[in-house]
């Protein structure tokens, strides 16, 4: 499990350019699914057919991560950039970025007060000595990610892009564990979540599921003087009640809570007052899809060092597996 998370978090996949991640996942799961395909937006869709009278469940974990995109290369070879997805400026200065061909750069700032530090006062230095040299290595419009290695601290793990490679890892593990599911399972490794839940929207349209479940990260409130949030690391899978993109269907919430209780899976309730997940896009597809989300509690979300607890990941896998095998007639 930890090895799966390591491989996934070390892969390159800013929004719109997720192929390395989807290819990696494909090699991990091909032997365990009945069918596998991609669509126009690059979503990877893996299918386990299940029993003929089961419900169609779409599980979504997004493969993309936040990052940067080069917008300008100046005479001295410094790069200017825009952010891809919700990147906090405080996480940038001194941070390193990596481009697809392995080029590494460091982000720093023009002289300025921290208070009015804006993105256009930051630049990336890839060590080039001229514009020409820089342009041989990157071009305008090149997407990059934050460069950071995976660390195993025991129960706790740190890596970049735990959001949402840990969700991908949950689905990969679940795919391996689920043998003959009662329901028809569509595991969708989605693209472009960080820029507006885009991949999930077109995938859900195509699949027309009966139930949509996003597996994604959520923030915690268990750090010093943290924002009020009753989710903690190590206390189990978080069952979402709402976020800005979705109010979880009351029946779906109840199904997940009952499953956790029945199977003694540790869980906590999540009320997120901002942010969204793929389920937000899924539930508004066509004439509506009852949807919910299983969240993995994560500290320092959208920083290069996102921390999770492996026990919460295991609980999330168990919950996905339990749902895959549950008869869902109450959704009719």
């Amino acid at each position: 499990m930890k090895e799966t998370i390591r491989q996934l978090t070390e892969a390159f996949g800013p929004s719109g350019y997720e192929t390395e991640v989807t290819s990696l996942i494909k090699t991990m799961i091909t032997d365990f699914v009945d069918e596998i395909k991609t669509d126009v937006l690059g979503n990877l869709i893996a299918i386990k057919k299940g029993a003929s009278n089961g419900h169609k469940i779409m599980f979504a974990a997004h493969t993309d991560e936040i990052g940067v995109v080069v917008t300008h290369i100046d005479k001295e070879g410094f790069l200017r950039f825009a952010t891809v997805g919700g990147v906090g400026i405080s996480t940038l200065v001194g941070n390193r970025v990596r481009f697809p061909n392995g080029i590494i750069g460091v982000i720093y700032h023009e002289k300025a007060d921290w208070k009015d530090l804006k993105i256009d006062k930051l630049y990336i230095d890839i060590g080039a000595e001229s514009k020409e040299e820089a342009m041989e290595q990157v071009k305008i419009g090149e997407f990059g990610i934050f460069h950071r290695e995976f660390c195993d601290l025991g129960n706790r793990l740190i890596a970049k892009s735990m959001d949402d490679r840990v969700g991908c890892a949950v689905l990969v593990e679940a795919i391996k564990k689920i043998k003959e599911p009662r329901n028809a399972l569509y595991f969708v490794f989605t693209t472009q979540e960080e820029v507006g839940l885009r991949g999930a929207r077109t995938a859900a349209y195509d699949l027309e599921p009966d139930l949509g479940i996003a597996v994604d990260v959520t923030i915690t409130g268990d750090m010093p003087e943290a924002r009020r949030m009753e989710v903690s690391l190590g206390k189990g899978a978080a069952i979402k009640v709402k976020d800005s993109s979705l109010i979880v269907h009351p029946k779906v919430k109840q199904i997940l809570m009952d499953l956790a209780e029945k199977n003694k899976i540790p869980y906590q309730m999540e009320v997120l007052e901002f942010g969204g997940t793929d389920a937000g896009a899924i539930h508004l597809t066509r004439s509506g899809v009852p949807s919910g989300a299983i969240s993995i509690p994560t500290r320092y979300v959208h920083s290069p060092s996102e921390m999770i607890d492996i026990r919460d990941v295991e609980a999330s896998v168990d919950l996905v597996v339990a749902l895959a095998n549950k008869e869902l007639n109450e959704l009719n």
């Binding site: 669509d39 126009v40 937006l41 885009r198 929207r201 077109t202 995938a203 349209y205 195509d206």
Partner: peptide, 9 residues
Amino acid sequence: IQLTESGTK
């Protein structure tokens, strides 16, 4: 246009 139905290039 990109996000209509199953997606457009």
